[in-house]
């Protein structure tokens, strides 16, 4: 890492410690996900039939074992793959669907705007978790299905964020000045409005990803979507919940902590990002 890059990293961290902490947490999970095969002491679904429900610290099982005799630590590490497996594609769907939708709805209004607003009304009236549950249950339980449902369910919300930004920008003097300069409509939209609208939206993306991770874990907890024994945190918590009463707390606790940390990391990164992306703060640090 060259000196200037290091300076920039340090500078970023100082300007927004919130982002730095959040990004740091995400980075740790990303490394866990990437090198899970190396870092995990044993395969996540390897069962030790005679070593079920061992407490943390017993033998090679640092965080203990679950009811199937699988190593909790290894499963928590591999769970990061599922978390990113949902967060990244769902975030991509939100961006790909939500940004154009929000741009058009905010700039043109008309029927696109009407439809978007009505869909949002429906989503607001309905608890999302129940909606997601219903759709996944109806369309089949694969992981891919969960990704698609979560991504598309949240796209209108992301579109609304973009739409609000566009609405605020539509009457900005610089947009009017861009029209007056002779910019064609597509250029006004893509060159002048989009880069300014995307600012607020980008900062929202990690927050929406956090939501996606949470909701997919919740689905798994209810028993929809990813199924045991796949090392998914929500599914692990569900499995572990049965043992909490009988005193085997570690089975549910560690995936729970991982889930909390991941969601917290994404939320912190999102909050910090909105500070960092403000162009007034970028160059002068005012």
């Amino acid at each position: 890492m060259s000196a200037t890059t290091l300076d920039r990293v340090v500078g970023t961290a100082r300007r927004s410690p919130t982002f730095a902490v959040g990004f740091g947490i995400i980075l740790v999970f990303a490394l866990l996900a990437a090198f899970a095969d190396i870092l995990a002491p044993m395969p996540p679904t390897l069962s030790h039939p005679y070593e079920t429900l061992k407490p943390p610290g017993s033998g090679p099982f640092l965080l203990g074992t679950d009811g199937n005799g699988m190593d909790v630590l290894s499963r928590v590490i591999h769970g990061a793959r599922y978390a990113f497996g949902i967060a990244l594609p769902a975030g991509a769907i939100m961006a790909v669907v939500g940004i154009p939708l929000g741009l058009i709805a905010g700039w043109r209004g008309g029927w696109v705007d009407e439809v978007l607003l009505r869909v949002l009304d429906v989503l607001r009236a309905f608890p999302t978790i129940i909606l997601a549950l219903a759709i996944v249950a109806a369309t089949g339980q694969g992981f891919l299905n969960v990704i698609l449902v979560v991504g598309f369910l949240d796209s209108p919300i992301f579109a609304r964020i973009v739409r609000a930004e566009v609405l605020a920008l539509r009457n900005a003097t610089f947009v009017r000045a861009a029209v007056a300069a002779g910019n064609p409509e597509w250029r006004v939209l893509l060159v002048h409005i989009l880069p300014n609208a995307i600012l607020g939206a980008t900062a929202q993306l990690p927050l929406r990803m956090a939501w996606a991770v949470r909701i997919s874990a919740t689905l798994a907890f209810i028993g929809i979507g990813v199924q045991a024994p796949a090392p998914e945190w929500g599914a692990m918590i569900r499995q572990g919940a049965e043992y909490v009463i009988s005193g085997e707390w570690w089975v549910a606790l560690f995936p729970g902590l991982a889930l909390i940390a991941m969601v917290l990391g994404l939320n912190l990164a999102g909050d910090g990002l909105s500070d960092l992306l403000d162009p007034k703060r970028r160059a002068t640090g005012k």
């Binding site: 900005a172 003097t173 610089f174 000045a177 007056a180 060159v191 002048h192 880069p195 300014n196 162009p279």
Partner: peptide, 15 residues
């Protein structure tokens, strides 16, 4: 045919 607006801080694309 050109125009200059009142608000110099708002008339230019900040990015």
């Amino acid at each position: 045919l050109q125009i200059v607006f009142q608000d110099p801080w708002g008339s230019l694309n900040p990015r």
